[in-house]
Computed example of a mutant assay.
Amino acid sequence: MSKAPIPTYDICSLSMGRPASDDILVARFSDYLAAHQDIHFPHRHSFYHLAFFTAGSGSHTIDFERFPVKAGQLYFMIPGQVHSWFFTGDIEGYVMNVSAGFFNAFLQDDAYVERFPFFSGVSREGVVQLPEEKMTPVVRLFEAMLAEMPGAEIYSLDMLRLLVLEMFIQVSRAGSQDEKKEVAPHNYVLLRNFRKLVEQHYMQLRLPKEYAALLYVTPNYLNAFCRHMLGKSAGEIIRDRVLLEAKRLLINADISIAAVAYQLNFADNSYFTKFFKKYEGITPEEFRKNIS
């Protein structure tokens, strides 16, 4: 188990050579692993991170949810998510690290990429399995990105932006039927705002009615909306965010259970333990033992 806080890497700390920009890195997965052999332990990024597997086996974990490695699989992560991996055999594919501001000079809407369902920050929504016939076009896009990475050609950064956005759109189109449904603009705005409010206030605000007031909707409407969009009530979404942060804190063995409860604004350690066990099925102490 980690004996220190989960490390957070910035995009420059994981650069390889002299890229065309400090805002983006695209590399072959095998080369990335060879250059960064020490980052398979749990860690976070301050940037968007994605990987595309074309061959290999093993597993990778995003926010404590484990996924088997499969050819044709992509995983997308937003800044702040925790992940680790355990690969077996040779891993082939591509990796991309891109800053939140990479598209700002190109798009009027600086939150445009958040529209893609795989950038929701929810682990399962960030893992996409491409059908075999859809792999080749995505491979071609990554190869084109690699060719632009040295920045030798004029407008290389703009071409990279175009290629990355095309890849996002192609992956969205190749997803499940539910993923292919574009969210209506007004629903997208409400969902994005709710999730951002939860991210900002989950330690203090735990009731759906508190978020409904901030969003100028009724609690009943917010719950019905969340069930329609995400299959969960607003209360479940808030609770899941609290549980996720509890797990992120518990992985640090130097922080006591009581200190975790305090940081998460629980009245006492006993209440936190009951809350955690009710929804996770195990106590915080048992969770720590399981991840050691």
Score class of each variant (00 low, 15 high):
Val139Asp: 06
Val138Ser: 04
Ser120Lys: 13
Pro137Trp: 05
Asp110Tyr: 00
Thr136Gly: 05
Arg124Gly: 15
Tyr112Cys: 06
Glu132Ile: 11
Pro117Ser: 13
Asp109Gln: 07
Gly121Ala: 07
Met135Thr: 14
Thr136Glu: 12
Leu107Thr: 00
Gln129Cys: 03
Pro131Met: 01
Met135Glu: 11
Arg124Thr: 11
Glu133Asn: 11
Glu114Met: 06
Phe119Ile: 01
Arg115Trp: 04
Phe116Ala: 01
Glu125Gln: 15
Gln129Lys: 05
Phe106Arg: 00
Arg140Phe: 03
Glu125Thr: 13
Glu114Arg: 10
Glu132Asn: 07
Phe119Val: 03
Pro131Val: 01
Val127Gln: 04
Phe119His: 08
Ser120Tyr: 14
Val138Gly: 01
Phe119Ala: 00
Met135Cys: 13
Ser123Gln: 10
Leu130Val: 06
Glu133Ser: 12
Val127Arg: 09
Val127Gly: 05
Phe119Asn: 04
Phe118Ile: 09
Phe106His: 03
Gln129Ala: 02
Val128Arg: 13
Pro117Arg: 13
Leu107His: 02
Val139Tyr: 01
Arg115Cys: 09
Phe116Cys: 04
Pro117Gly: 11
Phe106Trp: 07
Met135Lys: 11
Phe106Gly: 00
Val113Phe: 02
Val113Thr: 03
Lys134Pro: 06
Glu133Trp: 01
Gly126Lys: 08
Ser123Cys: 09
Gln108Thr: 14
Val128Ile: 15
Gln129Ile: 05
Gln108Asp: 15
Pro117Val: 14
Phe106Tyr: 05
